[in-house]
Nucleic acid binder design. Sequence first.
DNA 1: GCCAATAATGTTAGTGACTAACATTCCACG
DNA 2: CGTGGAATGTTAGTCACTAACATTATTGGC
Lengths: 209, 209
Amino acid sequence: MLVTNIIGMVTAKSRATRQRLVESALALFEAHGYSATTVDDIAAQAGVSAMTYFRYFPTKEAVVLEDHFDPIIAESVANQPATLPPLARVARGLREALMHLEESDDSEVRRRIAIAASEPALRSGMHQNTRETEDAIVAALTRHGTPEFTARIAAAACLGAITASLLTWASSTAAQSLRDAVIAALDIVTAAESSAPGSEPAATTGGMQ
Amino acid sequence: MLVTNIIGMVTAKSRATRQRLVESALALFEAHGYSATTVDDIAAQAGVSAMTYFRYFPTKEAVVLEDHFDPIIAESVANQPATLPPLARVARGLREALMHLEESDDSEVRRRIAIAASEPALRSGMHQNTRETEDAIVAALTRHGTPEFTARIAAAACLGAITASLLTWASSTAAQSLRDAVIAALDIVTAAESSAPGSEPAATTGGMQ
DNA sequence: GCCAATAATGTTAGTGACTAACATTCCACG
DNA sequence: CGTGGAATGTTAGTCACTAACATTATTGGC
């Protein structure tokens, strides 16, 4: 949820402008590369001034890095049995949250992440985006007695794994779904726990091993 | 190893200039905040022009984010027994690499990371820095038969945990050592494996739980 | 001690991301 | 139709960063 949503900017016209900006940006980034594309280019392509671009997106990065990926995670994590080790709770919570995600928009997400993977600055921007999610997970865990440091490390480990997984997934040609890529990553993080009580390994994922 | 070390820049004078730039930057960042400090300010404080600053550091971030922290890690990881699950091998390799680190310069590192923690842009810059280390670990693991995806996820998970740990450590007032903070983080990531064969939990760390 | 060669620094001029202040156009609703 | 607020534009500026070229220190050989 990087982006404004400030009061105003909600009319049909504004939604259309925003959409044009996103599409122009992705197309130009794919065609000429991220750094070779200026904000002016994007704005011009969308039929709008650069100033208007910045009214919709706070930075050049933001138009790529908006994540539709910050959802009910905390809720899911909080619902895991407190008897599991923190890392397992986070991983299982993330897996469950994923199940409540429409499979549909994989393709645009893949475009975005593929662009992000191509530019170091954007790659690290992805990590920045997970900060909110990390905080939400930490809050969920500490509410049930996990010490803050432990909670944060467990969250950071899982999110680091997921981010790496997404970057690999988006750059790969395999017809794997985003969901399977993330699940595969979480399986690796919790591999040693697959024999622990109450934890069944998720469905195997084919290609990405 | 963010920074130049290009041919030249190795004389006594250049080392002195570099040192002055680092000290000026840290002091100004601590005094007025990262974003309120301009590169011109830093250069002026060091008695040098802005252009000279950029001859030593490629970006404003770099003067903070140089890591003395990218060392023999791959070597250590490669030396772990291949019978362990990948995550455990990475964690144990990192722990061992840490042991070969002088404890001495904790204080400056702490200053740097504390500054990094205060600015989102710098925080994500830290992640960017770990990319080289991640690649080195992946290379070490795949050389011994671990699939690339698995290797990368394990590396990313551990490095994510370590980074989070460092950010917490640097902002805390506890007199803990950097080494103990990192070990504590790795213990959390591999908690479920502490009963696995050949893996003894590292020394407990007091404060940071 | 003087004279190259080379390292270190400076100057100028530019690009591009981003901000602030203010002016303008568009559009819905009375 | 006309008015108020939303959407957009203009201008002018700051700051990170780059390139090309000019200048000053430093150092090693004589």
